[in-house]
Design a protein around this nucleic acid. Structure first.
Lengths: 109, 109
DNA sequence: GTAAATAGGTTATAAAAAGTAACTAACATC
DNA sequence: GATGTTAGTTACTTTTTATAACCTATTTAC
């Protein structure tokens, strides 16, 4: 069956699509981005918005999202020091790209 | 800080949004829907398109997606019997809602 | 008609990811 | 100096995923 062979064979576009699904396919990533879409937030604020997400995993997700350029960590030198997280342009655009999924949820769930 | 209290307090819309992110936040869900968006496929075809997804988990994901009304299982009484999976209307709309994420991937990855 | 192949799974076990709760460091207030 | 807050970290448990072998039914190849 030749049709079975038309799969991803070093197709760079397929790789990107697959990567994006692995990204939003990680638990909590979508909700964290959604939360930050309405403005920068501190660690404890994000945690308060998503209480079922543990601090350990929140910290892990934040580092992953920083590493792929989706969020920025801004350390504000007040006393006590506060760290604020905000979406980069790349991250804001991902957040906006997820809005149709939220609209789907409103309609179908 | 009162602002921390403006979180999801029995907000049905937030629940829906959260549920949708938990759904697409499960590994492989997005790619399976993407794969089915271009037409119905058999078990082994989906597996061929996404070879890194094991048959055990593919089977689990298929059952979950069936349970929430996103895909249909059609048993075709040919000899040998073939089972074909297709998106429901709900599933097709979710697939379409994910296209902006793919466009984001094309632009930013 | 026996041997290997295909389709659509299931099972057992191992590895990776996420959850839980207690702890820490740096400062601040009472 | 005891208590609290912020932003984490650590050790340990539970849940998810991965890996690979196996299974049943039917089919094609020899």
């Amino acid at each position: 069956m030749d049709e079975e062979k038309k799969r991803k064979e070093d197709c760079p576009l397929c790789d990107k699509i697959e990567y994006s699904y692995q990204l939003i396919g990680k638990k909590w990533i979508g909700l964290i981005i959604h939360t930050l879409l309405d403005g920068p937030k501190r660690f404890s604020e994000i945690h308060a918005y998503i209480p079922d997400l543990s601090k350990r995993v929140l910290n892990e997700r934040i580092k992953e999202l920083e590493d792929c350029g989706i969020i920025n960590r801004n350390v504000i030198p007040t006393r006590p020091i506060r760290t604020e997280y905000s979406l980069t342009i790349k991250g804001t655009e991902l957040g906006k790209a997820l809005i149709p999924v939220e609209q789907w949820a409103k309609k179908w769930l």
